[in-house]
Design a protein around this nucleic acid. Structure first.
Length: 466
RNA sequence: UCCGGUGUGGCGCAAUGGCAGCGCAAUCGGCUGUUAACCGAUUUGUUGUAGGUUCGAAUCCUACCACCGGAGCCA
């Protein structure tokens, strides 16, 4: 692999190097120091991998008094040569000829020490937590997933579309939205007693997007296969280990694609990205498996290797009723699947991912395509064990008259959707798509228990620190 | 938003009405190849905040705050 610069070697690459005796320069942060007046062992990490590289610093080195004072968190540059390690625990190490300290780290003040700490505590020091083994592993896996997602779509000729973050359209669905405004909130302009948004920045009320789907549909109606991958905002007061106010979502949208092909793609997609994690993040996965006491490798392998179970909503309801289990919310046709229902299906009944399709139209969005029976829509939820819903998608209603009917039925205003309806007026096309919650995907792949620990700086009700 | 739980030294925890303690980290000293090194010694407290009950409160009561978990909403 190419090195970052010719003056610095990545620790990941040095650890598998066999160029013994070669002079090397490494730069990174001290994970631990042990030793005596005669010599010190420094373990250095640069985030390129989970492992540290061991540096042996002889007591005779100039400035050894400083080396003795190195502690967890210090940032250093080490000049030396790579040698085969004579001791167990590592194959190579670096014999230092010079240790230069970029930055000290007062051990009395530095919050991260060589010891167990809780996830709750690390959230309070989210600016430093990427330096821990756990968060290093999580964010390398997050990176691998993001890369695999782009690779999957690019290999299949999908066009990456950047849909807007600020939206003035009022029709992205029922979710609570954040207001984006430059008005003086202490003294907003008013008209007839109400805030006058015609004097706001955009000439009307603007919000942060809750989905890029509608925009993606417009592009699919021109470029056939497209996807978005961007931030999404929900102002819901959801305080759970599975919700964030700001999260990332991937939304492919395909023209000439029906509900069945949509589900096929979703399955192929999930398998592709998790296989990529298994192949490229072996050590990080193994570490998190131990750390989180989750059988991660088995979980990922099973998803990659076995076909997803596909059942209709109607079948799911029948299975739930026949299960003989007493649910807090008794399953009933026409009602939404509860968390406990999803858990039963994925964790008890099928022990793996389940795709539920064809939901009653009453509990789904207006844009979902109405099925032949007139009662259900071509919706699909992909449920996985431990997480619940990871993908939600559908075939979209492409028939202008039916879509108009649905908008009317639900009491929505047609004029808010003029551009969305235009796509159905001019060369309409059968099309489908789905949304994947990125952080939920990272949760599944890392075995972490809280979604706040798989995004660098979580935004949740009451907290937007860092 | 509703329900439940927790809040004690830098961190992880104990003490359930009666002297606030342990482990880790840190500090000092020792140690010729260590592996979360080891050995010896030392330091660290307005028990989340405000009020109340009591001779006496970390412990019981009330309110608030924060965090965690469950539910709802969803990705």
């Amino acid at each position: 692999m190419p090195q970052p610069t010719k003056y610095r070697k990545r620790i990941k690459d040095l650890l598998v190097s066999e160029e013994y005796g070669v002079p090397v320069t490494i730069k990174g942060w001290i994970k631990t120091r042990r030793g005596s007046k005669k010599f010190s062992f420094l373990e250095i990490n640069d985030g390129s991998c989970l492992e540290n590289i061991q540096v042996v610093a002889d007591g005779g080195l100039p400035g050894y008094g400083e080396i003795e004072k190195l502690s967890v968190g210090c940032c250093v540059r080490v000049e030396g040569k790579l040698v085969k390690s004579p001791a167990k625990g590592q194959t190579v190490e670096v014999h230092a000829s010079e240790v230069f300290v970029y930055g000290w780290s007062d051990p009395d003040e530095y919050p991260l020490q060589k010891k167990a700490t809780s996830m709750e505590f690390l959230r309070q020091v989210a600016h430093l937590r990427p330096r821990t083994n756990t968060f290093g592993a999580v964010f390398r896996i997050r990176n691998a997933l993001a890369f695999a997602i782009h690779k999957f779509f690019q290999e299949r000729g999908f066009i990456y579309v950047h849909t807007p973050i600020i939206t003035a359209s009022d029709c992205e669905g029922g979710a609570e939205m954040f207001q984006a405004t430059t008005l003086d909130l202490d003294n907003p302009p008013r008209k007839d007693g109400k805030v006058d948004f015609t004097r706001d920045f955009f000439g009307k009320a603007a919000k942060l997007t809750v989905s890029g789907q509608l925009g993606a549909e417009l592009f699919a109606a021109a470029m056939t296969d497209v996807y978005t991958f961007g931030p999404t905002f929900r102002a819901e007061n959801s305080q759970t280990p599975r919700h964030l106010a700001e999260f990332w979502m991937i939304e492919p949208e395909m023209a000439f694609c029906d509900a069945r092909e949509n589900a096929d793609l979703a399955e192929e997609f999930l398998k592709y990205i998790f296989r990529s994690v298994l192949e490229n993040c072996r050590k990080d996965v193994a570490f998190l498996e131990k750390r989180n006491e989750v059988d991660l490798t088995a979980r990922l392998k099973k998803l990659v290797e076995t076909g997803f179970i596909r059942i209709t909503y109607t079948e799911a309801m029948r299975l739930l009723k026949e299960s003989g289990k007493s649910f807090e919310f008794p399953p009933e046709w026409g009602k939404d699947l509860q968390t406990e229902h999803e858990r039963y299906l994925t964790e008890e009944k099928f022990h793996g991912p389940v795709v539920v399709t064809d939901f009653p139209k009453e509990i789904k969005a207006f844009y979902m395509r109405v099925n032949e029976d007139g009662k259900t829509v071509g919706a699909m939820d992909v449920l996985v064990p431990g997480i619940g819903e990871i993908i939600g998608g559908s075939q979209r209603e492409e028939r202008l008259d039916v879509l108009r009917g649905r908008i009317k039925e639900l009491g929505l205003r047609e004029e808010d959707y003029w551009w969305y309806l235009d796509i159905r007026r001019f060369g309409t096309v059968p099309h489908s798509g789905f949304g994947l919650g990125f952080e939920r995907t990272v949760l599944f792949a890392t075995g972490m228990h809280n979604i706040r620990d798989v995004i660098p700086f979580p935004r949740v009700p009451n907290n937007a620190e860092f």
